[in-house]
Design a protein around this nucleic acid. Sequence first.
DNA 1: GGAAGGATCATCCTTTCGGGTGAAGGAGAA
DNA 2: TTCTCCTTCACCCGAAAGGATGATCCTTCC
Lengths: 143, 143
Amino acid sequence: MKKTILWYSLAAAALILLLKLLEYQLFVRSLSLEFYLAVIAALCTTLGVWAGIRLTHRRKAVEVRAVAMFQRDNKVVDASGLSKRELEVLELMARGLSNQEIADALFVSLNTVKTHAANLFVKLDVRRRTQAIERGKMRGLIP
Amino acid sequence: MKKTILWYSLAAAALILLLKLLEYQLFVRSLSLEFYLAVIAALCTTLGVWAGIRLTHRRKAVEVRAVAMFQRDNKVVDASGLSKRELEVLELMARGLSNQEIADALFVSLNTVKTHAANLFVKLDVRRRTQAIERGKMRGLIP
DNA sequence: GGAAGGATCATCCTTTCGGGTGAAGGAGAA
DNA sequence: TTCTCCTTCACCCGAAAGGATGATCCTTCC
């Protein structure tokens, strides 16, 4: 942002210099005032467009980063009714882990994972893990 | 886009009118040429910034829609080696459908879906459908 | 101190998935 | 035309997932 403004200032300074040069040309070659004005208008417009694009590009980069860095929304989690453990299981499911792998990852038994899975299926109102993943992503529960 | 250009043209016309008025002011009140130029520069710059923002906002909207409305990249698909049918199966998998439901959706038998599934698992180098969904999303094969 | 809910584990049973293999018909390329 | 790939379908079998139910232990809340 600051960099853009700095560049804009420099460009403006360059423009003023150019104008001074043009001014001399104006008296020497007696170019029309309209031409003089048109040049200024064109340059300023270009500069403005460039600055506008620069500014909005910055803003867009921020938005992209916001999408990339998933941040859990507590309100959404509370609304879903999922417990912390169920959320963990769901997240590992979405990463493609099997129940056994999830059990190993969380240091619990396979049966425990299956219980958590069954409970979160009920809470998300789904029948399969793939559906659960879909719902979880739709609701912003998982990345 | 066209609307923006139209508005820009109208604004430019208004500016020219304003300039004509200023020109009269210039002769009547004998304002400095620098002031005249400054006004033009400021107006054109503002106009340019506005147009720039307008244009990039349009572009941003398109990009957002591109994220929301998934557009498949043929290069990615070719690189994956997935056939059209396999891609369809993968997409329905990602929506949480069971093999039987996919079979019904595509008007083929369950065995066919299983074959497609097995083939795409090999091509994506995965063992489970959840993994396939993960990979597919990572590579941009599916939304 | 009891009620509620979470986390843990278990058993039994059914359904779904996935691996392996084979095969037939069709479209397109060498 | 032969060969390759895609699509379709079938059968068998083992592994994984899912449904139902019950139980224990722990924390938190009223």
